[in-house]
Design a protein around this nucleic acid. Sequence first.
DNA 1: AGGATTTGACCATG
DNA 2: CATGGTCAAATCCT
Length: 316
Amino acid sequence: MECPSRPANLPSSRKHAVEELLRGQESAKKLRDLFNALSRAGAGGDGARHPVSAEDLVVNVLQSFDNTLSLLSRAEPDPDEVSQVPVKACVKSEDSEESSKTSVPRDRRGCYKRRKTSNTKTRLDHNLIDDGHQWRKYGQKAILNSEFPRNYFRCTHKIDQGCQATKQVQKIKDDPPIYRTIYQGHHTCKSLLLKSPPLILDSPSPGDSSILVSFNTSLTPKQDNHNPFSSSTFSSVKHEQKLPSDDDLTPRSGCHDGNSNSNNNQSASSDYYAVFESAGEISALSSDQGDVMSSSHSLDLIVESDFDDLLDIVEC
DNA sequence: AGGATTTGACCATG
DNA sequence: CATGGTCAAATCCT
């Protein structure tokens, strides 16, 4: 993220947004300290020693998100928002003439509206984790200046439930491996709700700007052949078996045997990842090979990193 | 056989 | 025009 700009240069609405985020960040830090103190003090209920209660802080954090989001959403119409929906509108039916254009009249390949970046979450992690959803790969593309191809996934329930969630996974570094996952859209499918009922702190205000801070610990107790791109790391249940094992991300049936554990080297070290979602919801998942982090700990880690990301992006 | 992935083609966007 | 995102036929896997 190279955006050296400072809040000073920003339009006032953005400045306010940044200030809000800073305030929230501050609260998140205090929250972290509070949790630290609590865990040190054991069950002593010493949280009372802190001038502010955890609840206040949480409310504060959520309030900040709320304010920020309304600021941002009012400040800029954000043309990008418009084409958020996968407008595959360009059904080539109006193309009785269109078809004459280049032949290959019947198929609709490439007939889509490119999504803009709104409503996305980006996260980086050292290994690929099951995020609790079922994904189906629908494409892979070599990306300019990227050593590794990008893989495109959509929710398995896109067809039966119309779920519009998609994600892109790309290895961005090899040693140690770092993967960037970009989530787009929200799951509207049911499996989502069933599978990952994360802890959700909802903003007090019921508006549509509701903030969601969520996390869940690793959802997949056993699965793990440790192949970074194997089905289990990505999705659950069915065999969404592949995600290529390496740069190529395309092992054939590679999760059961041979290379299954090849990749798991040191990955165990704390795998927390920052998540940023640009359009009105902030959420984060915390995961690890096991269940290392306590929920409170991971929560404030995530909240903090969210703020950092938010600040980066807002300031850009 | 049914469902998932691969892969080349297509096209919107910048 | 180059690039990236999606589609869908072909192929593979269970």
